[in-house]
């Protein structure tokens, strides 16, 4: 079973926030980067924002994939153990699936 972005999601990159988050990451100021919303998502009156880490995962789901594929990619990208990545991915997906931004296919 793969996960994919629901067709009716509107998304907007908050470009200035993204620049600031990238700059904060490059300086190792993770707390600042974590707290900046860089992608705004809207779906049927619901709205949410993702930080730069969420944005990174979101972009990976532009191509539908299984949760384990996603975790493998994140594990490689961030050089973290697969199990840690899998846990993070599951936490990330939970709210977005509950609110319908991401769906199972």
């Amino acid at each position: 079973m793969t996960v994919k972005i629901s067709d009716d999601v509107f998304e907007r990159v908050e470009e200035e926030n993204l620049r600031q988050a990238e700059e904060a990451l490059s300086k190792g100021i993770y707390e600042v980067a974590e707290n900046l919303g860089v992608l705004t998502l809207i779906k049927a009156g619901l709205m949410t924002q993702l930080n730069i880490m969420g944005y990174h995962i979101w972009n990976k789901i532009k191509e539908p994939k299984t949760i384990s594929q996603l975790a493998e990619e994140i594990s490689k990208d961030f050089d973290v153990p697969y199990e840690t990545a899998l846990e993070d991915v599951k936490i990330f997906l939970k709210d977005l699936i509950d609110s319908g931004f991401i769906i199972y296919e």
Binding site: R12, E14, N35
Partner: peptide
């Protein structure tokens, strides 16, 4: 994440 801010309005 607790810093909700938009670079432009949505509507």
């Amino acid at each position: 994440m607790n810093n909700f801010f938009l670079n432009a309005p949505l509507t």
